[in-house]
Simulated assay, not measured.
Amino acid sequence: MIGDDTSLHADTGVTSGMFVERSLNEIRFWARIMKEHSLFLRLGFRAEDTQLIQEANQFYRLFEQIEQTAHSFNNQTDPEHIRRFNSEVQQAATNIFGFKRKVLGLILTCKLPGANNFPLLVDHTSREANYFRKRLVELNQGKLQSLPDAIIKENVFFLRIMADHAKFIGHLLDPSERKLVDVARNFSNDFDQLLYQARDLESMKPQSQTAPLLDQFLDQNRVSVASLRDFKKTARDLIEQCKIKSIIHPLLADHVFREADRFLEIIDMFDAHLTGGTR
C-alpha cells in the first residue's frame, strides 16, 4: 500500500493517514448500505410483523447517525478517535448481522408466510454486514492482506454479490419485461461463471498468485462488472422515469448500481498496485 511518513503500526506498514482515510471511506460507504438494507427489509415485512419492523427502523436510525458522524470527520481526525469510532460501528454491524440472520431463520422455517423478502436477499445483506464488520476489525488491528490474497478474496466476495444482484433484478422485474429479464438472467449466468473461476483460482493458491494470472483475472472481471454497472444505471434511470414495469424500489436500483461502481473502483485500485509495483 502507499503510505505516509507517520507510522501507526510499524510492524504492518499501516500509517495514521492511511488508517483514518480508509476507515472513513469504508464507514461512509457501508453505513449507507446498512441503512438502506434496514429500509428494504422493513418494506418486505408483513403489517403484523411489528417487532421486526421496529427493529429495522432502529437499525435505520442507528446507521443514519453513524453515516452522519462519519461525514463530520476528516482525514486529519485523531486516529485514536477513529479507532474508537470503528469499534462502535463494528458492534453496530455485528448487531445488524445478527438481526439479518434471525430474519433468515424465520423465513426458512416458514414463520413469516406471505412476507416479501427473498431468503437469498436476506443472506446477501448479512454477508455484506459481515464483510463490513470484518473490515473494521482488520483496520483497527492494523492488518493488511498481501496483495495477491486481497485480490482473490475481494473478487470472490464481490462477484457473488454481483451475481445475486442480477438474480434479484430478474425476479423483481415484471415478467412482461421479457427482454430485460433475459438480460438480467444472462448477467446472472456470466457472474456465476466468473465466481466459479475465481474460486478455482483461490483453490490453486499460492501457485496461482502470479502477476500475469492476476492481471488477466482483474481485466476479465472489469469488463463484466462495467457492463453490469451500465445495465444497472440504465435500469435505475428507467425505473425513476416510470418507463419499465417492476416492483423494484428506485432506491434499491441506485443501491445495486453504487455497489457495482465500488467493485470497479476496487478492481482499478488492485490493478494500479499490481502493475505499478506499489503496495
Rank of each mutant, 00 (worst) to 15 (best):
M1D: 07
M1E: 09
I2E: 12
G3P: 04
L8G: 08
A10H: 08
A10D: 06
D11E: 15
G13K: 02
V14P: 00
G17P: 05
M18G: 10
E21I: 07
R22A: 11
F29R: 04
A31V: 08
R32F: 05
I33L: 12
M34T: 02
H37M: 09
S38I: 04
S38T: 05
F40Y: 06
L41D: 00
F45R: 01
D49C: 01
D49G: 02
T50H: 11
I53W: 00
I53P: 00
Q54G: 13
Q54L: 13
E55R: 14
F63T: 04
E64C: 06
Q68S: 14
A70R: 06
N74G: 12
Q76T: 15
Q76I: 08
E80V: 10
I82Y: 03
R83Y: 10
E88K: 13
Q90M: 15
Q90R: 15
I96S: 03
F97D: 05
G98L: 09
K100W: 02
K100M: 11
R101H: 09
L104D: 01
L108D: 07
P113D: 07
A115M: 15
N117A: 11
P119K: 05
L120H: 07
D123P: 04
D123Q: 13
H124R: 10
H124V: 07
E128Q: 13
Y131D: 14
Y131N: 11
F132V: 03
K134H: 14
L136G: 06
L139W: 01
L144P: 00
S146R: 10
L147F: 05
L147R: 08
L147N: 03
P148H: 10
I152D: 00
I152S: 03
E154M: 11
L159H: 01
L159E: 04
I161L: 14
I161S: 07
A163E: 06
D164Q: 06
K167S: 12
K167N: 13
K167W: 09
I169P: 00
I169W: 01
I169C: 03
D174R: 06
D174W: 05
R178G: 00
V181F: 02
D182A: 15
A184T: 03
R185T: 13
F187G: 00
F191L: 06
L194F: 00
Y196L: 15
Y196T: 14
Y196M: 12
Q197Y: 10
Q197G: 07
R199C: 11
S208Q: 06
Q209G: 04
T210K: 09
T210F: 08
A211F: 02
P212I: 11
D215W: 00
F217M: 04
F217V: 04
L218F: 02
D219K: 12
R222I: 01
V223A: 08
L228M: 13
D230P: 01
D230V: 02
T234A: 09
D237F: 08
I239F: 07
E240M: 12
E240F: 07
C242L: 12
K245R: 14
K245C: 09
I247H: 11
V256L: 11
R258K: 13
R262M: 06
R262E: 04
L264D: 03
D268C: 04
M269L: 10
M269Q: 10
A272C: 05
A272L: 13
H273M: 13
T275K: 15
G276W: 12
G277A: 07
G277Q: 05
T278P: 00
